[in-house]
Design a protein around this nucleic acid. Structure first.
Lengths: 354, 354
DNA sequence: TTGTATGCGTTATCAG
DNA sequence: CTGATAACGCATACAA
């Protein structure tokens, strides 16, 4: 049974290093960490021993002794969305210099999210947490605020917490103003059906508000507003609906590039020329936007991840945040999917009997 | 002295639960884990106490006591590549049922990779490791094989290890055969410059081999073969070179959809009609391929991640792998980027002096 | 079935 | 500057 003892690498511990170097384990620990008070001679002896034995400190033991995991945890819903992916990439990139491992906690439903937060709080106790596009219940938020690790929120403005976000209404306004400036008056909106997600997202509603208020300033009303689950195909179907209905819009604003690409697909299917007969505006400016030639509202997605990572690193290092809330810049990026409104109505609306 | 220990939330421990329930900590541990020998009455008392106190076992302490981290680590280069992203998504998805956190270890260079593997082996000691598109040195491979946690390789066939991979040469052949069947004879290749990556990748070379051998079977030779760092823009530049040169090809095979999209961009810039004057084949069938209307060689990327995750879970559970090596299926997906070869030569090659 | 004692590998505290 | 030694919180072998 145990005759074989362990044939596995019999992981070398700090004790092995200590005896090999002829010092106490405390000393080894010191050279490993801050290493304040160690004589040069001892230090080099220990370092030699470490190299000799190929010693690496046990992550679990360190975590237990220190009271926290040397890992940054990212809590993110919809890891399949391109924007979520890009954010995570930014985070990983921003954390690379520090060498801190990144753990991904995917969440599917609000209850699932709650569970993940609880396990994070009670069990994981990581070095820092980055929450993406999520706003958990008040009690979880409070516990997160009281936790002894830093938390940074991306794409959510949370009271008392450090957060990076965008002005969604302004984004909607930018999109609408662009179409208006091109002469469009029949503008429709395709957005997420956030109410049904259960997460309590509000960004689509805010963007819609931006659009309608921009239109209102010109005395116009939104031609149509369709929402559905966030996906390219759903957006395509909604667009078909919009484009084959009576009040065909000449411009469509969407809440993501994914959806905009769906609208483009619908237009192609229906033989509607973009941007000749129809202009489409996306949101986010993820990678696909460029290759699809999409006019879109760019938000610095990867950048938000990078900044969150840097913030976490700095906060975990004991720094105080200079600003709690940081609004990220938004920018209209014009490509091939928008153009001047058709001079003649694309489709003559039936004149109502006067 | 030690009374002040920590003023932090004084996280509730297994001891608190034990005393609250009036049992020993061993019992609590038992109901928490396998829970074999616990009377129903005691069990419910303990469970009540756990719920009362909102107890969650410390991940670090569990890890230390058990000797391994309840985390699956993914080692992956180029997290920015769409295919890498998709694989990670698949892994996360496949691991969701088990609730195991996923840690991402990004690697930039071979040395970096080595360091990550070493820290993984010596320090992290996770529940399992999934290595994506990487083949480290022999000694690291051996240590990985001897480690007491399971390792699954994706996109790499590694001696003695469990691995999921594709037949790259077959992929190249599929692409070339498709173009050949459309009447193309002037076929060029744009691929990764893997030699300079330092990682020792060979997939591009294997795909190229598939292409050339398919051509050879018809008595043809590759018109041109250009390589460079893997990026859309580099591919675009290479394509411009190809398309403005003397021997303009009518078909281009690339080693990724990203590159194929670059080729498409080049064609558009040059006013070359696709697929009228030029056919383009991608590789992978990532999301962008569909919206770009790219004909491509589909490999089950997300699926590979899911399967790897399931394999890890099963292996970590003590199962023996049924098969060490699994070849994933490849499939030609025809879209709008390929069509019949132009009947008249697009560009009359200057007849060499006879 | 259940409580107790020991070990896991570090960090941190405290004399020396 | 350095070597013991006590936590850290849990799993587990062992005793009861």
């Amino acid at each position: 049974m145990q005759g074989m003892g362990k044939q596995s690498p019999a992981n070398v511990t700090i004790n092995d290093v200590a005896s090999h170097a002829g010092v106490g384990k405390g000393t080894v620990s010191r050279v490993l960490n801050g290493g304040g008070n160690v004589s040069a001679a001892t230090r080099s002896r220990v370092e030699a021993a470490i190299a000799d034995l190929g010693y690496a400190p046990s992550y679990a033991a360190q975590s237990l002794a220190r009271g926290r995991l040397a890992t940054v945890v990212v809590v993110v819903p919809f890891v399949t969305h391109p924007s979520a992916v890009t954010r995570v990439q930014g985070i990983i990139e921003g954390l690379r210099p520090s060498g801190t491992p990144v753990s991904i906690l995917d969440v599917e439903t609000p209850e699932h999210a709650r569970g993940q937060f609880l396990m994070l709080l009670g069990s994981l106790r990581p070095e820092g947490v980055i929450v993406v596009s999520l706003t958990p219940d008040g009690d979880v938020r409070r516990r997160l605020l009281e936790a002894d690790f830093p938390v940074v929120w991306i794409d959510a403005k949370v009271q008392g917490h450090v957060s990076l976000f965008i002005d969604n209404a302004e984004g909607g306004r930018l999109a609408a103003d662009h179409l208006l400036s091109l002469g469009h008056e029949a503008i429709a909106f395709i957005g997420d059906d956030e109410a049904h997600s259960g997460f309590g997202f509000t960004s689509a509603a805010e963007r819609l508000r931006g659009v309608t208020s921009a239109l209102a300033e010109r005395g116009l009303e939104l031609r149509n507003c369709l929402t559905g689950p966030h996906s390219k195909d759903v957006a395509r179907e909604l667009a078909v609906q919009l484009l084959t209905g009576r009040d065909r819009p000449t411009g469509i604003v969407t809440t993501s590039d994914t959806q905009a690409v769906g609208v483009l697909a619908a237009a192609r299917e229906l033989g509607i020329d973009v941007p000749g007969e129809l202009s489409v505006v996306g949101f986010d400016d993820v990678e696909i936007a460029e290759s699809a030639g999409l006019t879109t509202i760019r938000q610095p997605i990867a950048e938000s991840g990078r900044r969150a990572a840097q913030l976490i690193t700095s906060l975990a290092g004991g720094d105080k945040p200079s600003r709690r809330h940081v609004a990220l810049p938004l920018q209209l990026v014009v490509r091939r999917s928008t153009g001047a409104a058709p001079t003649a109505p694309v489709q003559q609306p039936a004149t109502t009997t006067g």
